[in-house]
C-alpha cells in the first residue's frame, strides 16, 4: 500500500487562534480514514487545507503525492470534496448539476457521457435526474453531492460530515456506498460525529482542541494502555434506571470512570474488585436485576478517556 495523504506538522492560525496545531498523520491508499473530534476542534480547517482552499501557517502536506502549497492545480484534478453544508445549485436539476461539474472538470464527449452515467448508476440517483436539487430529501442531496464529487474519477475524496442531519436509513445506505467506493480503490477521508461510523473506518484519528490526540485502527486504539491502565478493567452494566445508577456508581470508591453508553453503563473499575460489588452497590439504592459483564472499551470510551488525560496534562502544563 502506498500513501495517499502525508501530513507533517500542519498548523493553521487565524490571528491569535490556532485552529490546527502541528498535526502529523498519514492515510494509506484505498482506506476509509475517519477523522473525529468535537465541533470547532479543527476538522474542517484541516480538510480545507488539504483541498488547497486555505494556506497553512506552518508544516507541509502531500495529497496523492502533490504538495498542497504549490501543486494545488494537480490536487484539484485528483480529489473530490463534499463540504459540511449541501453546496450544489438548488435551482438546477440533478442532471444539470452532475453535467455542470463534469464540464468544470474538463470532461468531454464519450468520456463525459460514460462518467455521467457511471456516477448516476453508482449513487442510484437516476430516477430523480430531472428533479431540482432543492426538492431532494437530505439523503438524496448527499448522494447528488457525492455524484458531483466523483464525476471526474478522483483518487481521494474528502467528506466533511457527510451524514450530519440525515435519517438513519439514509445514513446506512450512504456508508454502504462509501465501502463500495473503497472497494474501487478510492481513498476516503471522512469526518464524523457518530461513533458507530468511526467503528466502521479502517483507521481513525481523534482531534481535540486543534491537536491530534491519537490515530490508528479502532481495535488498536482500544488496546492502548492509556485507555485501560494497569490494574483496571472495563465493565458493562445493564440495569433499569440508568441515570440514578450512574450517579451511585460514580461515587463508588472502586470505580475510576463511568459513562452512559446507549442503554447501558460503561465503567472502568479496579481489577482487584469483584464484579459482584457493582450489583451490591446498585441493590443498596434499590436497583435490582443488574447485568454486569466484562467488556472491551468502545471507541467512545477511548476518546473520552484520552480527552480527559489530555485536558489533565494541559492543566499540569499550566
Amino acid at each position: 500500500m502506498t500513501t495517499a495523504i502525508e501530513i507533517t506538522g500542519l498548523t493553521k492560525k487565524f490571528g491569535d487562534v490556532t485552529a490546527v496545531d502541528g498535526v502529523s498523520l498519514s492515510v494509506q491508499n484505498g482506506e476509509i480514514f475517519g477523522f473525529l473530534g468535537p465541533n470547532g476542534s479543527g476538522k474542517s480547517t484541516l480538510i480545507r487545507m488539504l483541498c488547497g482552499l486555505i494556506v497553512p501557517t506552518a508544516g507541509s502536506a502531500h495529497v496523492a503525492g502533490y504538495d498542497i502549497l504549490n501543486e494545488t492545480d494537480d490536487i484539484r484534478q485528483t480529489i473530490g470534496y463534499m463540504s459540511q453544508q449541501f453546496s450544489l445549485y438548488e435551482d438546477l436539476t440533478v442532471w444539470e448539476n452532475v453535467n455542470f461539474y463534469a464540464h468544470v472538470y474538463g470532461l468531454k464527449g464519450e468520456n463525459l457521457k460514460r462518467r455521467r452515467n457511471d456516477v448516476i448508476d453508482l449513487t442510484h440517483i437516476g430516477p430523480f435526474r430531472d428533479r431540482r436539487a432543492s426538492a431532494l430529501s437530505g439523503g438524496w442531496k448527499q448522494r447528488l453531492a457525492l455524484s458531483c464529487a466523483l464525476v471526474h474519477e478522483p483518487k481521494i475524496i474528502f467528506l466533511d460530515e457527510p451524514t450530519a442531519g440525515i435519517d438513519p436509513v439514509a445514513r446506512r445506505e450512504l456508508w454502504d456506498l462509501f465501502f463500495q467506493l473503497s472497494g474501487l480503490g478510492i481513498t476516503l477521508f471522512v469526518t464524523t460525529h457518530y461513533m458507530d461510523e468511526a467503528e466502521r473506518c479502517s483507521r481513525v484519528g481523534y482531534i481535540f482542541n486543534s491537536k491530534l490526540i491519537t490515530f490508528g485502527e479502532p481495535d488498536d486504539l482500544k488496546k492502548l494502555p492509556d485507555v485501560t491502565p494497569a490494574g483496571a478493567r472495563w465493565v458493562e452494566v445493564t440495569c433499569p434506571n440508568t441515570t440514578v445508577a450512574l450517579g451511585a456508581l460514580k461515587r463508588a470508591t472502586y470505580v475510576r470512570d463511568a459513562t452512559i453508553f446507549g442503554q447501558s453503563i460503561h465503567l472502568l473499575m479496579d481489577s482487584s474488585d469483584r464484579l459482584d460489588r457493582i450489583t451490591e452497590t446498585l441493590e443498596q439504592i434499590g436497583i435490582r436485576g443488574a447485568e454486569v459483564t466484562a467488556a472491551r472499551p468502545s471507541l467512545e470510551d477511548v476518546f473520552v478517556t484520552l480527552t480527559k488525560r489530555f485536558a489533565g496534562n494541559g492543566n499540569l502544563a499550566k
Binding site: G52, L53, R76, S87, L88, V104
Partner: peptide, 13 residues
C-alpha cells in the same frame, strides 16, 4: 452564501 463558491474552488475553475 450557499457554499457553492467553496465547492467551485476545489475544482479546476
Amino acid at each position: 452564501e450557499q457554499g457553492t463558491l467553496e465547492q467551485l474552488l476545489v475544482t479546476p475553475v
